[in-house]
Amino acid sequence: MSFVDIRHLTRVFDVSKPWLNRVIERLPKARLTAVSDVSLQIEERSVYALVGESGSGKSTIGKMLVGLLPPSDGQIEVDGVDLATETDAETRDRMRAEIQMIFQDPYASLNPRWKVRDIIAEPVAARGSETRGLAERLLEQVGLSALDADKFPHQFSGGQRQRICVARALASEPKLIVCDEPTSALDVSVQAQVLNLMSDLKDEFGLTYLFISHDLTVVRHMADRIGVLYLGQLVEEADSDTLFEDPKHPYTQMLLAAAPKLDSFGREEEPPTGEIPDPINPPPGCVFNPRCPLATDLCRVERPDMRQAGGTRVACHMVPPG
């Protein structure tokens, strides 16, 4: 069995106005399906990337995986344990230590009033374990100095802060780290440092990453397997090389074509049309059909199931299975 097993994961948010406004303005309850029936597996010691644009639900999946949000429906099992239903306190505690997260904004993810030492050691201190020397050791591991432990976060640059976040994530000796856009707030030259560091640590500690990003180049660099999300649905999943060389879903194709490339001087290609629809009222059938050049009547009525096409899983009526 896979290390991470996500089955039919769904998350619905209630985005209604307060009930008084609803009564007065005669509005129905508004529901936003941020994640809809997503199933995927992540192998141990691999990097699985979720890509998608805003509103694709990629961060919501990450938050459910680490236990920050309960799923509305479906199961998540990590190492055979489902945090949402597990009742044994010891197992829950162990899983909390095994799953960590690195956030997008290195300026918001470190408590400005805490010393770096306490920030890094918190995952261990929270469980009442001994933390002496831990922060110093981890700081050196992520390429900072042990002397930095006595400083406060504001004394560091964005890239250094993200290293501190990595150190904190490593403190409890996790097996799985969810990385939510870990480099999108960083400058390119610093991004490379952080990505390299993450690759090194993965090899060193045998980590598994769920890597969430909107940046296709970063995803291609980091991931072994990639899932493409659109409006809360998994539309395509394949190994990294397969996905980039032979994208099957029209949305993936569009995404790859639209991304600016370093060698696309004076590109005169026709850009994709349309925008992401309102996730509160998604289109019926396949969510991509209003923008899809291949859409048929079937696509406008019926949501396509995931089907196997070679090494790719794809949710599209127009891709022949096999």
């Binding site: 680490v66 909390r96 799953i99 960590q100 956030f103 993810s109 470190l110 408590n111 995952p123 904190r168």
Partner: peptide, 26 residues
């Protein structure tokens, strides 16, 4: 809603600890 609070939550810190030690000083 800042990420350092989320980080403390996912570590398993209790709500009083988060309110008094994480949020209050800020």
């Amino acid at each position: 809603n800042r990420e350092y609070v989320q980080a403390a939550r996912l570590i398993g810190r209790g709500k009083w600890f988060i309110m008094l030690r994480h949020i209050l000083p800020n």
